[in-house]
Design a protein around this nucleic acid. Structure first.
Lengths: 241, 241
DNA sequence: TAAATAGTGTCTGTCAGACACTATGAC
DNA sequence: GTCATAGTGTCTGACAGACACTATTTA
């Protein structure tokens, strides 16, 4: 490394490959609800390391083409799900010397919520159901079991005080369907009257006048999401006792 | 790049320098309160780029010695403040092609809260006061003005519903001092009776029986923090109207 | 005594949680 | 009619916010 006299000269001579650097990647935990259970999208690895094993979608930053780290996440998400407009939120970064056999690795993690029917995924992908602790029945590559568990806890936590679960539903839905979605994520029953009061007061959904859905027993009013960011409603407690 | 037949061979031949990779660093926004204002620690850059400019403490991961990314953050914090046990929380990561003149850069950001008297900082550091919007009076290196502003908003947000502000106080403190700390962070007056009720109910501080502090007018009971993680108390609203 | 801050008692409006009730449609 | 689910009305306890009050020290 030379001693630069000024910034221009320094930058001309700067070469990242003169340094020991970590691997830097992006991983995305994509949630949906299928058959009354929370599922995550996993993909079978085509290359080493962990070739053939299942893992969450992700990969390296394309420094030539990606402008931002979120663009990397959206690109990977689109590659695997064909869908590029989900609820997407950065979750945090995991970095240590041991998580990747290739060496020191940092991964910036995202979590996404999608409706099952918006996804037309590639052959190397499938939905994997989670148990009530956010665990899968099989061991995944890297530390991805832990990653999914952390994302699941974050999802449960946010569902307690925000309207985040809306993003799992289709365009039109009933209040009972919305309540069921919350119950599946939270793993417990909610009080009906209280749930409806809060969700309507939050002003995040709109009644579709004249539109209703036939259920097993009677009709139910349809609603749709309003174009709105994640709203927080700070309830005292969401669970019915 | 060779076609590997198995994982062992693949790993033997793997060399990160065969790829275009981003710079990966850690940045820490360290908050304290001095003279009734929120301050952040800044340090003058010894090297290019931005040599001589002020920036938040941070730097590259030492892949030979750091075991985790948090260890990198703690190492940098200790180097600059001489203090290694503050409240430290990962805030998120910023990554894009433009933020560093050397090239594509990802930084994992942390924010810390310390008591002013726990810090004995190096010559190249100083405290920098923030205005009510979390802005400094001078332009810092990289995107660090933005970084500080985001950290400040996060601090304000967490102060609304958690006991986070405790970490700014010294070992022993009065309830009035604690309330003042919240008021400085939040930028508004709080209701005294309500504040005391909530903070005592949260069960995060302990009355020091028989110990009191002489203030300008009368004595005040001293308290100390209990060994406890950040507690959330979900109040409806912290502000007095 | 006045001034200033420490610390307490109590009222009120809001709202989560609980639960019973009515409404509607399939069978 | 019965059964199941959709949807509503209302009570209650908890508590934030408001505010007035008392207590203690300096000057």
């Amino acid at each position: 490394m030379s001693m630069a006299a000024n910034e221009k000269e320094f930058l001309k001579n700067y070469n990242i490959h003169d340094y020991d650097v970590p691997l830097t990647s992006v991983d995305i935990v994509i949630f949906t609800i299928i058959d009354d259970r929370v599922n995550v999208l996993i993909t079978q690895r085509a290359d080493f390391p962990f070739k053939g094993k299942w893992a969450t979608p992700g990969g390296f930053i394309d420094v030539k083409n990606d402008q931002t780290i979120e663009a990397t996440a959206i690109r990977k998400l689109k590659e695997k799900t064909g869908f590029d407009a989900p609820y997407l939120e950065q979750m945090g970064s995991i970095g240590n010397a041991k998580r990747d056999p290739r060496g020191w690795s940092v991964t910036v993690t995202y979590f996404a919520l999608v409706n099952e029917h918006n996804v037309t995924f590639a052959d190397d992908c499938c939905w994997c159901p989670l148990d009530e602790n956010g665990e899968t029945s099989t061991k995944l590559a890297f530390d991805h079991n832990l990653l999914i568990k952390e994302a699941f806890l974050r999802l449960q936590n946010k569902a307690q005080y925000s309207t985040i679960a809306l993003h799992v539903l289709p365009e039109k839905f009933t209040l009972s369907e919305l309540q069921q979605t919350y119950e599946i994520i939270l793993g417990g029953k909610l009080n009906k009257a209280g749930f409806r009061r809060r969700i309507l007061k939050a002003n995040v959904i709109e009644k579709l006048e004249g539109e209703s859905k036939q259920t097993a027993t009677r009709t139910a009013q349809l609603y749709r999401k309003l174009d709105q960011e994640d709203v927080h409603f700070y309830m005292r407690e969401i669970y019915a006792r």
